[in-house]
Design a protein around this nucleic acid. Structure first.
Lengths: 346, 346
DNA sequence: ACCTGAGCCGAGAGCGCTCTCCCGCCCGGC
DNA sequence: GCCGGGCGGGAGAGCGCTCTCGGCTCAGGT
C-alpha cells in the first residue's frame, strides 16, 4: 500500500548527468563554481529523477537541521483556552518556513516532561529553541543553556532578561496598562479598580506596574488578584463591589477576566459603561467582540511577536559561530507596542 | 557563547566501556543478547559521558525518523479563532511523546504552501502525517499519497473516507446534531431553525443532515447557510427572524454562530430560552460558557480525537511493511461520540 | 574427548551526503 | 613555445550510526 519507492540519491543524479557527486551537490546547494551548461544538465537530471536531498544524511555532516523547537510550557489549560498561542504559532511558522526551517512542537505539562525535553534538546535535533509561558523558577532555561542551544523567549523571563544574553520578545504590557488606565481617567473616572493576572507571570506583574504608574496613590482595596481566568474575574469583581461599591471603572488584566467582571456587574445591575467602565487586555478575538457590551481593550500584535521571535532566532543561527565578540549585537530584549482598541465598554 | 561541546559518540562510549560499537548500540537500543555485567558497564559509560544518540546518523540507516507531520490547512482565521486546534494538538502531542515521536507542525495558508509541503513530505523527514481541515478538492491527500506516507485525517474527508484505506477520525456530527434537535423537541419546540456551517466542510454537511434526520419535513425557510463565524450567525438570525418570526428554537452549527444568533435575538427583544431556545455545537470553552445566557451545546472530545489520530497513525507505522494483506485491520474511519451539555439557553 | 549448536560479541560495510584536497585544463604573459 | 596561475571538477574521506556476518566460547550430548 504505502510502499516507499527507493528515492533517488545524489549518486543517481550524478550518474544521469554524467558528473560527480560533488558537482551535483554544488548545484543543489547553489554554490557557484559550476559552469552553466553543466549546471543545467544537473538541474535537468534532478528534475527528471525527482531528486530530493536526504536531510538526515545532510545533517549528519553539516550539523545543521534547519529545524527549531517551539516549547510551550503550560500545565494549565489557560493558554489553550485562548487563541493566543495559535496566533503566535502562525507568526512563527510563517517566518520559519520563509527561511526553510521546520517547526518542531514540544508541549510540556509537568515536570516530568522537562527531562524529556532536555534529552531532546541535547539530542541535537534542532538548531535552536523558541520558548513560551515561562513561569517563575522554570528549569527550562537551564536545560536549554546546557544543551548549548540559542533560544528566544516569548515574554520577559523573570530572571534577568537582557542579562546573560537572554533574548526575549515581549509586548509593552506596562505601557499598554498605562494607556488603558489613562483612557479611563480621560473618561472622567476616578475610582479605578484593577484585577490582576496570575502574578507568577511577568506579563501580569508588568500590567499591575503600569496600573500603579498611573494610580500611584490608589486605594489598595481597588486591586484584587486574579489569575487570567473568567472565573477569577467574577470572583474578583464581587470582591471589589463589596470593598468599594462606589468604583466607577475596572481595568482587567486580560479579556477573559474582563468578561467575568462584566457578567458580575450585570448581575448587580451596574450598567457598563455608564456606571462602570471596563477595559480588558489582549484583544482576544472571540471574546472581546462577543461580550456584552463589546470590550474596550489593549491589543497586542501576537502574530508579530511570533514572527519577531523566529526572526531573532534565525539571525542568531546564521551568525558565524566564531562571532563571540558580536554578542550584544543581537538585542537582548525587544518590546512591541500595544494599541488601545475602543469599543463600547469604556 | 553557545559553543557546542563536541558530543560523545558511540565510539567514545565503546572505548570507555571497553567494548565494540555494536555492543553499545545493542544496549542503547534495548536489544537483548548482551550479558548483564557488560550491559551494566556500557550503561555506566553512557551516563558518565552523557551520551545521547545522534538522530541524524540513526535515521540515515534506519530510515525512520520517529517524527510525524501535523498539517493544518487553514487559510481562514477560523481555526485560529477557536481553541479547537490547540486542544487537538495537545492530544496529539501527548500520544506522540508517549511513544517518543516528534511533532513537526506544518501550517499552510494558500496553494503555494502546498508545493512546499509536498516537497517536505517527499523529503522523507517524517514517517507519517496527521491532516486537518481538509476542504473540498484539497490537493493535500494526493501529495501525501505520492510521498508514500501513511496518513490519518482529522474529520471525514469529502472523498471516500473508508475507501482506499483512507483513515480518519471524526466526531459524530450527525448524531450530535440529532441529539440537539431532539432536545429542542423535548422542550416542546416545534418551529426549529438551523443555521448551517460552511458547507464545503463535511462537519457542516453532517450536522445539517442530522438536523434533517429529525426534521424531515421542515420548512426550507427554517434553514439558513452560515460559515461557522459569529458574523454569519448574526446575519442568518436576522434572515430567519424575517422569514419565520414565529420560530421558537435555533440549532446553530457551532458555538460561535450561536453566539452571534444570541446577540441578534437579544437585539430583537426575544428572550432566550423563554421565547427562543438555542443550541450550539462544539462546547468551545471561552465562548459557550461566556454567552448570555450560557449555551446549551453539543460537546465533542477534541483532545480525544487528537490522541486517537496519533494512535492510529503510530499503529500504522509500527506495522511491518510487509503486512499488505493486513490492510483493513486498521479501521478506516472512527467516529467519536458526542454529548449534549445542558446550560441555560435551551 | 569430539562434535554440534546456541548464544555473545566484534569487525566492517555501508546509509547519503558534504567538503577538502588535488589534479588537469585553459589561458595569458614573456 | 613554455611556464605559471587560476579555476572547474573529481576522488575520497569521513559524519555517527545500524546491522549482517562470522568467529569464539561454552554447554550438552554422544
Amino acid at each position: 500500500m504505502t510502499e516507499t519507492v527507493p528515492r533517488p540519491t545524489l549518486e543517481a543524479v550524478a550518474a544521469r548527468a554524467g558528473v560527480s557527486r560533488a558537482t551535483v551537490s554544488r548545484v543543489v546547494n547553489g554554490s557557484d563554481g559550476v559552469r552553466e551548461p553543466l549546471a543545467e544538465r544537473v538541474r535537468r537530471a534532478v528534475d527528471e529523477l525527482g531528486y530530493v536531498p536526504n536531510q538526515a544524511a545532510r545533517s549528519l555532516v553539516t550539523r545543521r537541521h534547519d529545524a527549531v523547537a517551539v516549547i510551550v510550557a503550560e500545565p494549565e489549560t489557560r493558554v489553550f483556552a485562548d487563541p493566543f498561542f495559535a496566533r503566535q504559532l502562525r507568526g512563527i511558522s510563517k517566518e520559519l518556513t520563509a527561511h526553510d526551517n521546520q517547526l518542531v512542537l514540544l508541549l510540556t505539562e509537568d515536570r516530568d516532561d522537562h527531562a524529556r525535553v532536555g534529552r531532546y534538546l541535547a539530542g541535537g535535533h534542532v538548531d535552536g529553541a523558541l520558548v513560551f509561558s515561562l513561569h517563575i523558577d522554570d528549569p527550562l532555561p537551564g536545560l536549554i543553556r546546557r544543551a548549548g542551544l540559542p533560544a528566544v523567549f516569548g515574554g520577559r523571563p523573570d530572571f534577568g532578561g537582557g542579562r546573560d544574553g537572554v533574548v526575549y520578545v515581549d509586548s509593552d504590557n506596562r505601557g499598554g496598562a498605562r494607556d488603558a488606565v489613562r483612557h479611563l481617567l480621560g473618561l472622567g473616572r476616578s475610582r479605578i479598580a484593577h484585577i490582576t493576572g496570575a502574578l507568577d507571570q511577568t506579563s501580569a506583574v508588568d500590567r499591575l506596574d503600569g496600573f500603579r504608574d498611573v494610580r500611584v496613590d490608589t486605594d489598595p482595596r481597588l486591586v484584587v488578584e486574579g489569575d487570567f481566568t473568567a472565573a477569577s474575574g467574577e470572583r474578583a469583581m464581587r470582591e471589589l463591589l463589596g470593598r468599594r461599591p462606589d468604583l466607577d471603572a475596572v481595568f482587567a488584566a486580560n479579556d477573559l477576566t474582563a468578561a467575568g467582571a462584566l457578567r458580575v456587574l450585570r448581575e448587580h445591575g451596574r450598567r457598563v459603561p455608564d456606571d462602570v467602565a471596563v477595559v480588558g487586555f489582549d484583544d482576544m478575538q472571540p471574546v472581546a467582540e462577543q461580550t456584552e457590551p463589546p470590550l474596550t481593550t489593549v491589543r497586542q500584535d501576537i502574530e508579530g511577536m511570533g514572527r519577531l521571535m523566529a526572526r531573532l532566532l534565525l539571525r542568531e543561527l546564521d551568525r558565524p559561530a566564531t562571532a563571540d565578540e558580536d554578542a550584544g549585537v543581537t538585542p537582548s530584549g525587544v518590546v512591541l507596542p500595544t494599541t488601545l482598541v475602543r469599543r463600547a465598554s469604556a
